[in-house]
């Protein structure tokens, strides 16, 4: 399983193990949307254990963020390594998300 879901207070934390790529993006999307339908509002995707995200992975985060905002919720990101942060900066998606250095920082004030 590439995605581990856990709860920190009222925040649903999704850990991405390994990669978020074209081959598994749908799994993440389905999982998060299921939780959104159940009424979850606060999502933190943590990339501490992630080596690589491709453009499809970036796209699914954009799509999920939009759907969550439409439901009055928020999607935050945390723990991006230097390479992953570069991808967000190149594509200017760092302007679209709240990106935190650590999981703890991402959970603060949620």
């Amino acid at each position: 399983m590439a995605f581990q879901v856990s709860r920190e207070g009222d925040v649903l934390v999704v850990d991405v193990d390994g990669q978020l790529i074209v081959g598994n993006r749908q799994e993440l999307k389905t999982r998060v949307l299921e939780e959104l339908e159940k009424g979850e509002q606060k999502f933190l995707v943590d990339f501490s254990s992630t080596g690589y995200i491709d453009s499809s992975g970036l796209g699914v985060l954009v799509s999920l963020s939009k759907k969550i905002r439409e439901q009055g919720g928020e999607l935050r990101l945390s723990s991006l390594n230097e390479d992953l942060r570069t991808l967000f900066e190149l594509t200017k998606l760092d302007s679209l998300f709240r990106i935190h250095d650590s999981r703890e920082e991402g959970l603060q004030g949620f």
Binding site: D54, G59, L87, T91, L96
Partner: peptide
């Protein structure tokens, strides 16, 4: 894909990334 009107699209970043990298 970095144009303001494209930024919210879920696709279209692959060629851009190749050209950047």
């Amino acid at each position: 894909p970095t144009a303001p009107e494209q930024l919210h699209r879920p696709c279209g970043r692959g060629i851009f990334l190749m050209r950047q990298l």
